[in-house]
Design a protein around this nucleic acid. Structure first.
Lengths: 213, 213, 213, 213
DNA sequence: AATGAATGAGGTTTCATTCAT
DNA sequence: CATGAATGAAACCTCATTCAT
C-alpha cells in the first residue's frame, strides 16, 4: 500500500486514534466471538500494522481504549438522563441501564476481555491513567444522580457495575444457547441476563438505599 | 527425562490430572502476574509436554479445570459450614466468603482470566459440561444454605458470586498498589476489596431477603 | 483392552504378522490418500500399539512388508501365466500387467511411498534382506518368461518395473482429477496412466528385444 | 538474532526464496540421509523460523520448490544444448542426461521424496500449479528437441523421465553400498545406475523413434 | 510518520517409539 | 507376550511486536 497521508497535528492524531478504534469496534461487532488480530484491525482501518503502534503501545492498550470509550458513552448517557427534569426512580435507572446494554452489545464482552487481560500486559502507567480517568468520570455520574437519589454513593455505583459485569460473566449466553442464537440472529443480550440483572440491581439498590436511610 | 510411573487405572489418571493442576497452581501463585506456558507446567509436573495433552485437550481446558477446582473448594466449604449446627447470619456468610477468598488467592484472578477466555477458545461441549457441573454443585450449596436462610434462592447466590467477581475486577489491586504490594508481600486480597465486598453483599442480601419477606 | 491371546509358536507369529498387514492394507484401501498411523493400524488389527513393535521394528518396516507382499503377488501372477501353455506376445504381457495393476490398486501408491521412505528410516540389514529376496524372486520371473521371450533379461524386467513406477509418479491422478474422481468413484488407475504405460512398455520391449536380435 | 535486511520489492522476495532453497539444498547435500527440519533450514538461511512461512506455506511446499528448481535446471540445460548447432543423436542425449544427473546429485533423491510426499500433505492448488508449470516447461523442451529428433513426442520425454526416476528407485545405491560409499566419498550416482539407465533409454528411444518411422 | 517484512515465542498437534506394568 | 501411558521431536500456525526502509 502506498503511504497514507500523515497525521501531524495533535487533532489529526486523535482523529486517527478514533479511526482505529472504530475499525476495531466494527470488526468486533461483525463477529463478537473472536477478537480480531492486529493485522485485521490495521487493514480495516486502512493502515499498516506498524502504524497502529504509533497510536497504541500494545494491542491491550487498544482494547482498553475501546473499553474506555464504551464506559464514557455509558457514563455520559446516565449523566444526560439525570440532568433532565423528569424525576428518576430505581426502575428508571434499571431501564436506562438495560437500554444502554442493548444499544452497545460490545460493551460487556469487551469489558470482560479487558479485565481478563489487565492481569497481564498493560503497563502500570497506562492502567493507572485509565483508572484515574474512570473514577473522575464516575464522580460526575454520582454527582448527577444524587439529584434523584440523595443517598447514592460511589460505592453503590461500583457495586452496580460489578453486578452488571459479574452477572454477565456468569449468565452470559451459554455456548449452546449461543449456537441456537447465531442461527436465529437473536440479540446477544438475552432476556435471561437482563431480567436477572434487573432483579439483582433492584435488590442491591433497595438494600443499599434503605440502609443508609 | 526418563519415563515416569504410569497412571493405569482411572483413579490414577484422575490423580495425575490433579498433579498437573497442582503444578499449574503452584506456578500461578509463584508469579500471579503471568500465566506459565505449557512447557513450564509440564516441567513443574515432572511430565512431558505431550503428556499434558493426554489429560487436557488445550491450555484453556486446563485453566478451566483449575477454576472448577476452586469453585468446588469454595462450594464445598460453604456446604460444610452450612451443615454445622451453629446458626448462620448474613455476617457469618460474609465472614466465610472473606476467609475463603484469602485462603485461595488464585481464585479471583483465575476466574477473571477464565471468563475472559471463555470468549474464545473453549469448545462448546467442554464449556457446556462445565456449566452443567457448576450449576449442579450450586444447587447443593443453595439447598444447604436454605436451612439458615429460608428465603435464599439460587438467583441470590449467583448475584453474590457476580458481586464477588465483578467487584474484584473493578477494585482489584491497582497496578501501582500491586507494585508496592509485591515488594512487601501483602496479601493480594486487599482490605479495600474485602471491605467493599462486605458492604455490597450486606446490601444485596438485605435487599433480597427482605424483599420476599 | 484385555490382553489378547498370545502367539507363541513361529507359525502363529507369522500368522499375526499377516493379520497386521491385512489390517494395514484394509485401511490403505479405505483411504489411499493417507497413510494410517500406527494407532489406527493396531486398532484395525485388534492389537495394542506396542504389540505391533513385536512384529515390525518400525512403521517403515511394516510398510516395506506390505510392499513386498504386493511384489510377490505380482511376480507370482506373472510366473503362473508364463507357466501356462498359451504363448505370450508383448501385448499379452502388457495386458497381464494392466490387469494386475487394476486388481491391486494399493500397489503403486505404496511402492512410491516406500521408495520415498527408503531414503530414510530403514535399517541397513532390513533393506538389504528385502533387496535380496526381491532379486531372487525376480530371477524366477525372468526364468519363467524366457520360455516366451528368449531375449528377455533381468535388465528389461527392471526397466519395465521402472517405467511402471516412474510413469505412475509422473502421471498419477492429478489432484484436480483426483477430486473429481473421488466424487464419482472412478478407479484410481486411470486410463491415462494405463494407456501411457502400454505405449511405453511396447516401445521399450520392442527396442530392447529387437536390439539383441 | 538481529533483524535481517528486508526483501521489499518482488525481485528481492524471489531472491530470498532462492536463498532459502539454497540453504535447504546445502543441508540436504551435507547429509543426504536425513531431511533437515524447518528450524535448521531457517538457521542455515540466516532467517527466523517464522520467516520461512512467509515464503513457503509448508515444509512440503519448500521441498516441492527445490524439486521444481532441479527440474527447471534440467529442462533448461536440455533446451540449451538442443539450441546449439551441433546435431544430436540418442547417445548425445544420454550423455547429456548422465552429466546432468552427476552434476545435480540431490535431484533424484529429492524427486523420489517429493513423489512420496505428494501422496499426502500438498494442497490441491499448489500441486496443480506445479504440474501446470512443469508441463509448460516440458513443452519447450520437446519443441527444442524436435529439431534433432523429428519424431520425438512429449510422451517419449515423460517415458524417459519415468525411466530415470523409476530405475533410480530400483537401483539406487543399496544401503550397504551406501555405507561403503559414504566412507569413500564416492559419487551417489553409481555407475550401476547410470549404465542401466543408458541401456534402458537407448532401448526405449530406439523402440519409440523407430515405431513411428 | 508510515510501512510491512522479519522476528520469535509459544500454543497446538501428531505420532513413531519406548518401557513399566 | 501384550498393553497403552508416556515420551519428545518436530511440524504447524498464529501473532504481537520490532525496526530497517
Amino acid at each position: 500500500m502506498s503511504q497514507h497521508c500523515r497525521a501531524t497535528c495533535p487533532e489529526e492524531k486523535e482523529q486517527r486514534r478514533h479511526l482505529i478504534l472504530d475499525a476495531a469496534e466494527r470488526l468486533w461487532l461483525d463477529d463478537p466471538e473472536r477478537m480480531a488480530n492486529i493485522a485485521e484491525i490495521a487493514q480495516a482501518a486502512g493502515l499498516a500494522k506498524g502504524t497502529l503502534y504509533l497510536y497504541f503501545r500494545s494491542k491491550e492498550e487498544l482494547l482498553l481504549a475501546m473499553h474506555e470509550r464504551h464506559n464514557s458513552l455509558f457514563f455520559d448517557s446516565v449523566i444526560q438522563r439525570a440532568g433532565q427534569d423528569a424525576p428518576m426512580a430505581i426502575e428508571d435507572m434499571i431501564g436506562l441501564i438495560r437500554g444502554l446494554l442493548i444499544a452497545t452489545p460490545a460493551f460487556l464482552p469487551l469489558a470482560t476481555l479487558c479485565h481478563g487481560l489487565m492481569e497481564r500486559h498493560i503497563s502500570l502507567e497506562i492502567a493507572y491513567a485509565f483508572e484515574e480517568r474512570t473514577h473522575a468520570h464516575l464522580d460526575l455520574v454520582v454527582a448527577a444522580l444524587q439529584r434523584h437519589f440523595p443517598l447514592l454513593t460511589q460505592a453503590l455505583m461500583l457495586q452496580s457495575y460489578a453486578l452488571i459485569l459479574g452477572l454477565w460473566q456468569l449468565l452470559r449466553p451459554s455456548p449452546l444457547k449461543e449456537l441456537m442464537r447465531q442461527r436465529e440472529l437473536v440479540c446477544a443480550c438475552t432476556d435471561d441476563y437482563l431480567n436477572a440483572l434487573g432483579l439483582a440491581l433492584r435488590a442491591l439498590w433497595r438494600g443499599a438505599l434503605s440502609t443508609e436511610g
